[in-house]
Design a protein around this nucleic acid. Structure first.
Length: 273
DNA sequence: AATCTATGCAACCGCGAGATA
DNA sequence: GTATCTCGCGGTTGCATAGAT
């Protein structure tokens, strides 16, 4: 028997087979996401609920992007990582993933670790060139969920609207002010892939614009991130918006890493809005 | 051609938070 | 108020494969 066929306490572990994928997909299509404790039974797969959930989220979910990350995605990851993550320990991969449509937290986590490790180890380690600056308490920025009143209207004007009701979907996951969220999964019946692509592009552009304007300490989003609360140590020369609205940032990722990310370091005293 | 090493990805594990009884 | 259950997340591990020797 293969090792990945190992059965512990009657629950199969290891790599998923095509048959299991089909069963799980059908089950989710029929019953929807959630109630993961029921999924193994409903799907008829001999897996634990965690395994089912993970397989769905990381592999089977519709609209997932596979393959290499494009420059825009890399740029967003780098920036969001600095915005949301503590470089030494934990980082909010799920938050970052939520801002990069079609990518999972696991994907981003793997990408970051492989590429960052590759960059930060080796030559840099001996020379100290890549050594990240010691973090101080004040430059670790963590978003804090806020309960907002329905009358709250502080929505960035550049935020692309979803097709759904204007419920400011960016707030739906208790993650205010982090981005518009492109609808995926449940509501998506796969009837308009081009429309989805447009939404994704729009979302990426929105983020690019937001990050750019905040870097320059100007722009229409300054009301969102005031100078008092978001300070960029040094403007990034690598990231400039091109006429088509996307970053012209060849090797931006490598640049950020080579610079020890210092050009993206943020000084946040708090997250008061 | 065979072997070794590095890399990338998929999956698992443990823990904490939130929901519910 | 508290105990239990479920979900979701981050960190880690293990396997497959590409590239180097």
């Amino acid at each position: 028997m293969e090792k990945n066929q190992e059965v512990v306490l009657g629950v199969r572990k290891g790599a998923w087979t095509k048959d299991e994928d089909i069963l799980l997909r059908k089950c989710i299509e029929n019953y929807g996401e959630g109630k993961w404790h029921l999924v193994p039974l409903r799907a008829g797969v001999n897996r634990c609920r965690k395994s089912c959930r993970l397989r769905w989220l990381n592999y089977l979910r519709p609209n997932l992007k596979r393959g290499i990350f494009n420059q825009d995605e890399i740029d967003l990851i780098v920036r969001l990582h600095n915005l949301l993550g503590n470089r030494r320990r934990c980082c909010r991969w799920s938050l970052i993933a939520g801002r990069i449509p079609g990518r999972t937290a696991n994907d981003i986590k793997n990408f970051w670790k492989t590429h960052f490790r590759k960059k930060s180890s080796g030559a840099g380690e001996s020379s100290g060139a890549v050594k990240t600056p010691a973090l101080q308490g004040c430059n670790i920025f963590r978003p804090t969920p806020r309960t907002l009143s329905k009358s709250f209207q502080h929505v960035p004007e550049h935020c692309p609207s979803d097709d759904g009701p204007s419920d400011s979907s960016m707030f739906k996951n208790k993650e205010p002010f982090l981005s518009p969220v492109v609808e995926e999964g449940g509501e998506d019946d796969g009837d308009d892939e081009e429309g989805d692509d447009e939404k994704i592009d729009e979302c990426i552009k929105w983020w690019a614009e937001l990050l750019e304007t905040t870097e320059n300490g100007q722009g229409n989003n300054s009301s969102l991130f005031s100078d008092d609360h978001l300070m960029i140590n040094e403007p990034s020369s690598a990231a400039k918006l091109t006429p088509n609205g996307l970053f012209d940032h060849a090797n931006i990722f490598a640049t950020h890493i080579d610079n020890g990310l210092t050009d993206l370091s943020l000084d946040f005293d708090d997250w008061e809005l």
